[in-house]
Computed example of a mutant assay.
Amino acid sequence: MSYASLPTNPFSTGGKIEDTRLFIGRTDELHAIAAGMQNVQPTNINIVGDKHIGKSWLLYYFCLTWEQRVSDQNRYIVVYLSLRNANCQTEAGFYQAVADALQSRLSTWQFNLKNALRTKPLNRQAFSNAIKQWKQQKVLPVLCLDDFDRLFRHPQEFDDGFYDNLRSLMEDNALMLVLASSKSLNVYGSEHRFVSSFFNIAHTVELQELTTDEAIQLTRLPISSVNNTPALSVDEQEKAQQWGKRHPHKLQLAGYYLWEARQQGKSIKWAKEKFEQQIADFQQQGKGRGWKSLLGWLDPLHLGRLATKIGGNWDDLQNRIIGMLILVVIGLGLIRVLPLPDVKQWLERIFNFVK
């Protein structure tokens, strides 16, 4: 493929990599995905790691370079799809987004595969039938799905039946998934009380920080695609490594502001202040998400649904009432109006009631 010139500042702090020379490291992870594709029974991969550790870049980079990693390119269609997309908040929207991504990658001679995905409405059954037609043509769709944990925000759309259907296609060797999420699938399955075996059939690959050699290599990114001179001076490279350690995003930020400081005639102190402010902002955002997550767990409707999932059919009003009762009992225990044994006894009564 042809490479466009590198951006003015070679240290990208957002978006996706278009010039593959900007991607550093992750050799073992890339090999694991390619090997999973070529197994007799394709191995589904769950890429797990903290925010900003490089999950999105890894998936996107693999989609740019997968043809260099497998022996028979005609057997596969590999696509990248971020589930942050608003269209992926419903099951039908998810299928359509996947279909659009797959169709955009098909060659002229694969026109018959496009027809399989043009069924209207493209519901669960129609999607399964389309993927099975691809299998008959000996083509394996490989879906690199970023932000997969976004689906868990919509449990009524993406229920056990949805995940069972994906599992069935995966077990039939008709579909391979490479999923990026903050935690492993089996953890999410337990947290959200899914019973589908979908949450136990992926190989987990945990992303860690870069190696020391990879971190050094990242700080030596070239000025442009035609000039291999490092964008940062030796002193600036050392500063970037000191500030960012081996964390890929922090290294990118450090390189970005050191480059900007030189271009704008600013001091190293200015670059470090900008870098530290960005890190503080990201940490604050993380705390905000933590509080939102906690508040989500304390929402009466969520608590009620969690309780009634043990058994019985309950509507949202009943779930909300049950959730409120749980909160009241816990609150009375916290302010010591109810002793701990009584709190336990009341909670047991509520859970026994909903069974």
Rank of each mutant, 00 (worst) to 15 (best):
S12W: 01
A130P: 01
W314A: 12
N228W: 04
N87E: 15
E236T: 05
R21C: 05
R21W: 12
S71Y: 02
I77G: 05
D72G: 06
L332M: 14
T204G: 00
P300T: 00
R305W: 06
L59T: 02
W243M: 02
N46G: 04
A116K: 11
L106K: 00
K292G: 08
S182Q: 10
I201Q: 13
V328W: 05
D281K: 13
P7E: 10
T43R: 15
D72P: 03
D164A: 06
I310E: 11
Q285L: 09
W57E: 11
K269C: 01
L303D: 03
L64D: 08
R26Q: 00
K135S: 10
H302Y: 14
R305F: 05
F353W: 15
G25E: 11
A202G: 06
G296P: 09
P222N: 08
V79D: 07
W291V: 08
W57A: 13
I33F: 02
T65D: 14
M176W: 09
E91N: 07
K239P: 00
S107I: 02
T43K: 15
D146I: 01
L258Q: 07
N85P: 01
M324K: 14
E191Y: 08
V195I: 11
Q252F: 06
V195W: 03
G311N: 12
A116D: 10
I223V: 14
P155Y: 04
T212S: 02
Y257S: 08
G161Y: 15
Y95C: 10
W314L: 11
R153Q: 14
A32F: 04
L232M: 03
N44T: 06
L22H: 11
N115S: 14
I201H: 06
A280T: 07
Y61A: 08
P230G: 10
S224N: 02
Q217L: 12
E236Q: 15
W270H: 07
K344T: 12
L221F: 08
R305A: 08
I223W: 04
K355E: 13
D159V: 03
L185G: 03
P341R: 08
L177S: 01
G290V: 05
F353Q: 15
Q278F: 07
Y257D: 08
K16H: 15
Y80A: 03
P339Q: 06
R153V: 02
D160I: 01
E171I: 01
N46E: 01
L185D: 05
L232Y: 00
Y61R: 11
S225P: 00
V328D: 06
G290C: 03
A86Q: 13
M170E: 04
L251T: 04
E91G: 05
S168N: 12
Q283C: 06
K135I: 06
S181K: 11
W243G: 02
P42S: 12
R118T: 10
S5M: 11
A215F: 08
V178P: 01
I47G: 02
K269S: 10
W297N: 01
S181C: 12
H192L: 09
L232A: 03
L210A: 05
F282I: 12
K309F: 12
V48Y: 04
Y80H: 13
F162V: 10
Q96M: 13
R336G: 05
C63V: 12
K287S: 09
R124E: 07
S181Y: 10
